[in-house]
Nucleic acid binder design. Structure first.
Lengths: 235, 235
DNA sequence: ACCTGAACACCGTTCAAGT
DNA sequence: ACCTGAACACCGTTCAAGT
């Protein structure tokens, strides 16, 4: 809780930083879910009048955009860049890092996929992905599409996972998370949806990260398959 | 435009249907994007006081949920159930049908992935997917995970595609759609993001459905790979 | 330049009526 | 039972001030 109001005069003081505003927004999002970051709430949290925020950002969309960018900037490029590792492992590292970071702030996820991710940090991630795929020997045309496929998978997974919770607050521990998704399956009449009921039984012991990695590996298998039959027509 | 107001008295008349309310919501969503379906807007569109909507739905979330369910109920199970077709083609049919239907209503997409898809029609789709995978000989444990992977891919693709547009109104034609995504790539400094710039060049001629099907086929390849090495440990 | 008070045009939802 | 008017507690944003 930075500055519970009090020491605010009138004149020019440059009391705030853009980052303090983003901190406030993130805190509200973490506490109350994706709708909780109101301009008025943020303003109150940093100890400023509702319209004081507009000194630092042109509108609410800009605040959200900056916050998303800041979060994407936190991913660890280190492991990802290491060419000593096999390419699949490098992609898995990125995917896991991204998931861990975003899962820590589930309220941000709907905002992230609510708009285009075209900031510099988003582009940097895309660039890294393309690098790894190039190192893996995937030809440029396929690499461009494979990178997008991976982005769809990573953000799609996280988005659906967050959606199945319908908020707010931090994500529950792993074990509970998969149960959430299976509750709908298990609650389903086995006569009408026999496969779904069976699937619920099959998945009973699993954990969400297992599902995430399993899917990612299937995607990587698919990409590798294309690389293997290099140059063949696809359709 | 159903009923531009006028003939409304007081007493019990059961003027409206749930479906008329959903129609109004959908129209607003199509015209103004995912934020445009306000309770007040819907009420005005069906010619009722703002709180009149609450006679038919307990709250706005219920309206959204019902609309999503109705949309998911429209998918054509016919082609999908046909066991004469090879399993990959059956999955592709479902995936394409779903994409066509959702792309027609981009404003609904963020609402769809904004909450859990656990209604009967969503479960029915899941059941169908599992049926196809069972027919394909995928073992039940893998099928359960493969079905979720496919769901992630389909809804993730559509969500990101809609997000890259940031609304409102109907989706532009195919040719323009891929250009939207590439604009960010192309506008990027080639010295800092050489792979990204190269990828933009590679994708220049493509169309969004091509990318969608390419990714789907990689996912199917990945699933098939697992089926092929049946029973081996995955990690 | 920075910040405020006040206002504008919106929200979703509730509640005590009226028919 | 169905629908309304009025109100409540919110929104994002603008604008004319004050320092």
């Amino acid at each position: 809780m930075p500055e519970p109001a009090g020491n605010r005069r009138r004149g020019p003081r440059r009391t705030l930083t853009e980052d303090q505003i983003l901190d406030a927004a993130l805190t509200l999002l973490d506490e109350g879910g994706s709708d909780a970051a109101s301009v008025r709430g943020i303003a109150a949290k940093v100890g400023v009048a509702p319209n004081g925020v507009y000194t630092y950002f042109p509108d609410k969309a800009a605040v959200v955009k900056a916050l998303v960018e800041r979060l994407l900037g936190e991913v660890d490029h280190g492991i990802f860049v290491d060419r000593g590792q096999p390419w699949r492992q490098r992609v898995e590292s990125l995917a896991l890092d991204l998931r861990t970071r975003l899962s820590a702030h589930p309220g941000v996820v709907p905002l992230m996929i609510g708009g285009p991710m075209d900031g510099p940090n988003a582009l940097a991630l895309n660039e890294r992905l393309l690098e790894v795929l190039a190192d893996a020997g995937v030809d440029p045309a396929d690499a461009a599409r494979a990178a997008y496929l991976l982005i769809v998978y990573v953000f799609g997974s996280i988005a659906l996972e967050v959606a199945d919770l319908h908020q707010p607050g931090p994500l529950p521990p792993e074990r509970e998370r998969i149960d959430t998704r299976l509750r709908a399956f298990a609650a389903t009449p086995a006569e009408r949806y026999p496969h779904t009921a069976a699937a619920a039984a099959e998945l009973a012991g699993y954990i969400s990260t297992d599902q995430y990695l399993w899917g990612l590996r299937r995607v990587l298998d698919g990409i590798a398959t294309t690389a293997a039959r290099a140059g063949e027509a696809d359709s």
